[in-house]
Every structure is written in C-alpha cells, then in structure tokens.
C-alpha cells in the first residue's frame, strides 16, 4: 500500500510536512467510510459509467479550424518559433 506522499508524487504534487499530515488525516477520515462499500454484493453487476442510456454519439468527419496558431500561443507561458517551450525532456 502506497502512502500519501507516493500518491502525491504520482500526481506531480510535492507536499510540505504539514500538508502531508493534514491530508493524511483527512484521507483516513474519508476512508473509514469506504469500508462499508465491501458489504454490498455487486458480483453480478456491471459498473455504471454514465447515467445516460444513449449510445453511438458520433461526429461527421469534417475538419474545421477553430483557432489561429497566434491565438493558441497567446496565453502560453513560454513559446518559441510557433512551439510551446519546456525544459529539455529526456527520452
């Protein structure tokens, strides 16, 4: 079983010690209630993914241009030569 710090790292979050303590305490509090889920027999059931009884919502294959590159990059924190820019990423 992983602990809070490990799950935080998976989500690219670094917590301070006090954040870790507080979140751990709240997680424990929440999880106390989770145990009750096991008491329900769901072996014959399919999971519910959406409440809608709707199938096959599909879009015609037509291309449109919604944004110019200029507009797209307007709010980019760092951009270079038409690209979004980040520090060197290892393969």
């Amino acid at each position: 079983m992983s602990n809070i710090t490990e799950y935080a790292a998976i989500e690219r979050l670094a917590l301070t010690d006090s954040e870790t303590d507080l979140i751990s305490a709240k997680a424990n509090y929440l999880e106390e209630g989770f145990a009750a889920l096991a008491s329900v027999d769901t072996s014959a059931l399919a999971p519910l993914v959406t409440v809608l009884a709707v199938e096959s919502v599909l879009r015609e294959d037509v291309s449109t241009k919604m944004l110019s590159r200029e507009d797209l990059l307007a709010t980019a924190p760092e951009q270079y030569d038409g690209y979004f820019q980040v520090p060197k990423t290892l393969e």
Binding site: R59, T64, L67, R69
Partner: peptide, 27 residues
C-alpha cells in the same frame, strides 16, 4: 486516414506547420 482528429474537428493531415492544426481541446 480521416479528415479530422479522433475527438475534435481539427485537421488530421500530415505536414502542417507546428501547432497549426490545434484547437483548445487538443491543446
């Protein structure tokens, strides 16, 4: 070989300049 992308209507064609075939969804 589709005209548009899988989940948005941007062009799926190869060879465009960087970030020309991009919309808010696929960005």
């Amino acid at each position: 070989a589709t005209e548009s992308k899988l989940f948005c209507s941007c062009s799926a064609k190869f060879g465009a300049d960087a970030n020309e075939n991009v919309c808010p969804a696929c960005a």
